[in-house]
């Protein structure tokens, strides 16, 4: 599955007929089995970019192509994991995970089998009958990941999915994302504000400048896996990206 983001721009209407430009001329593509980390100063439109890729929002200019066809509405070939807690609280875990399959009218057997498979893939067992409010934040996000996997999307879009988690949980869930990637070979596009997370997970980093978000730089993360967060190369790349981001943030403040 090949994703092409082609000269994408987005403007939001403001008061008095003015518009606010949040994204400008974003072009990049991703190949199969690749993890792309999207980073940038706050307000650079990272989340908007991901939402446009997901088909949840329409671009003002340019387009998103998935295997050559234009994305303009949510597409089950892409799964999305949201920053906010997005499970349906009136359903239990198994019902939440199988909702996509139910919409697709899958047989009960298929639903049961997939719920079990994907819950264990994200490292959750014995919680199928629980309700989301009985789970910790990290477990809820794992359920959300399992839910998005049931339709076997080629691509996973993640919008700061671990931002609300404590550091330890966050580390654990990052490890399971890597495992998941090894098992399923999906393309992952991850929006994050954590440089460490991006360097740990991504094969390439797309760095956006501050508003309007433009591609400032694309960095190849040429570190072999499993990655060691304490290794010299890891730390030096992390510092390099951090410096880049703080320069961008300073530049954007100077502009205003």
């Amino acid at each position: 599955m090949r994703l092409v983001v082609d000269r994408l721009g987005k403007e939001f209407p403001k008061a008095k007929g003015e518009t606010l430009k949040v994204l400008d001329d974003i072009t990049f593509s991703s190949s199969e089995e690749e993890t792309i980390g999207i980073l940038g100063p706050s307000g650079c439109g990272k989340t908007t970019l991901l939402r446009i890729i997901a088909g949840l929002e329409k671009p003002s200019t340019g387009e998103v192509l998935l295997d050559g066809s234009r994305v303009d509405s949510p597409n089950p070939k892409m799964g999305m994991i949201f920053q906010e807690y997005s499970l349906l609280p009136w359903l239990n875990v198994a019902e939440n995970v199988s909702i996509g399959l139910e919409i697709r009218n899958a047989s009960e057997e298929e639903r049961r089998e997939k719920v079990e498979r994907y819950l264990s893939l994200v490292g959750l067992q014995g919680v199928a009958e629980n309700h989301p409010y009985e789970l910790s934040g990290g477990m809820r996000q794992r359920v959300a990941v399992a839910r998005s996997l049931t339709l076997e999307p080629a691509m996973l879009l993640m919008d700061e999915p671990f931002a609300a988690l404590d550091p330890q949980t966050r580390g654990e869930i990052q490890e399971s994302i890597i495992r998941l990637k090894e098992v399923t070979g999906k393309t992952i596009i991850l929006v994050t504000h954590s440089v460490e997370e991006a360097v740990f997970l991504a094969d390439r980093l797309v760095i956006l400048s501050a508003r309007p978000g433009r591609i400032h730089k694309i960095i190849l993360v040429d570190l072999k896996r499993p990655r060691d967060r304490a290794s010299e190369e890891f730390v030096s790349l992390r510092v390099q990206v951090l410096n880049l981001l703080s320069d961008l943030a300073v530049a954007s403040k100077a502009d205003r």
Binding site: P74, M80, L87, R147, S148
Partner: peptide, 21 residues
């Protein structure tokens, strides 16, 4: 919540599924 609607829309739900689910 918008996050409920969008999460289920991402799973291929049409207007009727969104209404009932």
């Amino acid at each position: 919540k918008n996050s409920w609607i969008e999460a289920v829309a991402m799973l291929g739900a049409g207007e009727y599924d969104l209404l009932t689910r």
